[in-house]
Structure formats: structure tokens, C-alpha cells
């Protein structure tokens, strides 16, 4: 409660003013109780299609004899051509990623059946670079 002196048109009034905020437990709540802190429910993120789901032949699920890239990058060179015979462990391609060359080796001996990526093109992690029959 506050006592104020108010002058209106030259006439002084003695006024008692009740300040609601100051009365404990009276009047409207000062503010709504804080909502319990919880993390915002995540808007379910759309599942990202796995590379294997893409229709492009380059990203088909690898099978036996498929030589895949261990990481995403750019194919800088192919060390073999279609029809060539390779030994297991022979270097067949080079992928550049993270300012490094990563050499790709033949997982088995055989003949290069097809090449899926040309030098200069991008490769994804796990995508097939070439196939050994």
C-alpha cells in the first residue's frame, strides 16, 4: 500500500494506492510457472537414403569381385584397363581425398570386367570403382 498525494486541476487529493505486486499471495500470479525444462522433441529427421538405395549403377550394393572406395573423394587414376588380368593385391586405382592419395588394391585375382568410374569423377564411400570377374 502506498499513500500518494495527487494534484488534479490545482486541487490536491490524498490517495491510497494498492500495489498488487507487493501483496504476497494476492492477485494474479506474477508470471506463469516456468515450464519444465526439457529438450525440444526432435522433429524426426527424414532417414537419409543409404547409398545402396540409389538407382545409379555406381552405387549398387557391392558384391564379390567389386572394388570399392574406402572413402569419399575423387578418382585420380586407374592403373588397369578393362580386360586386363590382375593379381590379388595389385594396385588398381588411386582415390584422392583429404589431400591424400589412397591406393586401391585388387581384393582377388582375375580379369577387370568393367570400370564404373572415370578418372576425375567423384566416388562415394563404398561405391564400386571397378569389377573383377
Amino acid at each position: 500500500m502506498k499513500r500518494l498525494k495527487v494534484t488534479v486541476d490545482g486541487k490536491a487529493y490524498d490517495v491510497n494506492v494498492e500495489v498488487i505486486d507487493e501483496i504476497p499471495g494476492a492477485g494474479a500470479p506474477i508470471s506463469a510457472p516456468p515450464a519444465p525444462v526439457a529438450s525440444v522433441p526432435a522433429a524426426a529427421p527424414a532417414p537419409i537414403a543409404a547409398p545402396v538405395a540409389a538407382a545409379a549403377p555406381k552405387t549398387q550394393a557391392p558384391g564379390a569381385g567389386d572394388v570399392t572406395s574406402p572413402l569419399a573423394g575423387k578418382l585420380v587414376s586407374l592403373e588397369v584397363t578393362v580386360g586386363q588380368d590382375v593379381q590379388e593385391g595389385a594396385r588398381v586405382a588411386t582415390v584422392e581425398a583429404m589431400k591424400m592419395n589412397t591406393y586401391i588394391y585388387a581384393p582377388k585375382a582375375g580379369k577387370i570386367a568393367s570400370v564404373q568410374v572415370n578418372p576425375g569423377e567423384a566416388v562415394d564411400e563404398g561405391s564400386v570403382i571397378l569389377r573383377i570377374a
Binding site: 574406402p70 572413402l71 573423394g73 581425398a97 591424400m100 589412397t102
Partner: peptide, 8 residues
């Protein structure tokens, strides 16, 4: 090991 995944 830079020989695997560029050593990342």
C-alpha cells in the same frame, strides 16, 4: 595410418 582412409 595414412595408407588407410588417408589416415583420417
Amino acid at each position: 595410418n595414412p595408407a588407410q582412409k588417408a589416415g583420417t
